[in-house]
């Protein structure tokens, strides 16, 4: 844990990429949470490092730490251990960057009370780090008030699901993650009668990947749900308002740690059951797994999804760049197969 140099106090943004980081915890400390959308996939491993390794390096991790560490408005970077690449990314940041970096352990197992306590303790440690940056430890009522605000915003956001197109909703989610703002819906979206509903699952969608919605639309699909790591799957459950006043930290920890299913949790049977429910509830006719090259956790389960879901699965590997012709062709073929 490193204190921020006083000359850099003017910086405000606290950047993170994991859905396990509660924005309201950062905001309650008087700092600006920003779940950054990675827009750059610079091929260098790390902008200020005298090294350049591509093989075996996740393009998302590379893009995230490059962008976060080169943004002059960034006060600190928070990474989590949910992915080995991000865990090692923290090693690189501490080696090559002066920006304070906090690595939070998010337990992979979830079935015991011990790991719930461990997650709570990690949030408390994160709080200590935020204080070291110049944040102020919130009183319980202040934290509860911030949590209520975020809870209401998420409620407002979720009310727009299905009312706007899949792409618009994904962008609204991304906007909320980055800024904490919820934009109002405009006209009601009605998918064409012949549109085939599909669902997305997988790694975070950023930058150019939002074009995937357009590509699927071009070939006659509507995206009925977005269960990627930037989609609605990873929103925390609504807070238990009855307990919020007395134990806000516990409510916060419970909501963020155990409410959404994740591919990396062990065991990860919850995500398979969750997906079956979504496929049934949204009447989707195909599921699209979108994953980054070298992302083992999603990659290893592609076949299991294929075997367990009642609809066809398309496995798309992205490297952080534009959607290529090969991927377009596969999407086209997949959609033709669904007709």
């Amino acid at each position: 844990m490193t204190s921020a140099p006083s000359t850099e106090r003017s910086r405000k943004k606290v950047i993170y990429s994991s859905p396990y980081i509660p924005a309201e915890w950062i905001a309650a400390h008087g700092l600006e949470p920003n779940r950054m959308a990675c827009l750059s996939y610079d091929r260098s491993l790390f902008v200020s490092a005298p090294v350049n390794v591509e093989a075996g390096v996740c393009p998302y991790m590379r893009g995230f730490i490059n962008q976060a560490s080169s943004d002059t408005r960034v006060q600190a970077i928070i990474l989590t251990t949910t992915c080995d690449q991000m865990r090692r990314g923290a090693d690189l940041i501490s080696l090559y960057s002066h920006i304070p970096c906090f690595l939070m352990h998010v337990p992979a197992s979830w079935e015991t009370s011990g790991v719930n306590r461990l997650f709570l303790r990690e949030l408390e440690r994160l709080g200590e780090f935020l204080v070291s940056l110049g944040g102020v430890k919130p009183q319980p009522d202040e934290l509860a008030a911030t949590m209520r605000t975020y809870d209401e915003k998420r409620k407002k956001l979720m009310a727009q699901q299905g009312m706007v197109s899949g792409k618009d909703f994904a962008q609204k989610l991304a906007c909320f993650a980055e800024t904490g703002n919820v934009t109002d819906g405009r006209e009601q979206y009605v998918p064409g009668e012949k549109c085939i509903p599909v669902g997305f699952i997988g790694s975070p969608l950023t930058g150019n990947h939002f074009d995937l919605f357009d590509v699927f639309s071009e070939y006659g699909a509507s995206v009925a749900f977005n269960a990627t790591e930037t989609g609605e799957r990873v929103l925390p459950a609504r807070f238990d308002l009855r307990r919020l006043k007395d134990e806000p930290m516990h409510v916060l920890a419970e909501s963020y740690f155990s409410s959404f299913p994740d591919i990396g949790e062990r065991p990860n049977n919850r995500i398979f059951m969750w997906m079956k429910d979504r496929v049934r509830d949204h009447h989707v006719r195909g599921v699209v797994l979108i994953r980054y090259m070298w992302c083992d956790k999603w990659h290893a389960e592609a076949q299991r999804f294929r075997e367990s879901l009642s609809v066809p699965l398309l496995d798309i590997e992205i490297d952080g760049e534009q959607i290529g012709e090969r991927t377009r062709n596969r999407i086209q073929a997949f959609m033709e197969g669904l007709r």
């Binding site: 065991p267 992302c295 389960e301």
Partner: peptide, 22 residues
């Protein structure tokens, strides 16, 4: 699990998915 490599964690999960409780 936790501070372990993703490859192993992912593969062990597949082992469990094949009916070997872990």
């Amino acid at each position: 699990v936790g501070a372990t490599c993703d490859d192993f964690s992912a593969i062990a999960q597949r082992v469990e998915g094949l009916g070997n409780p872990i």
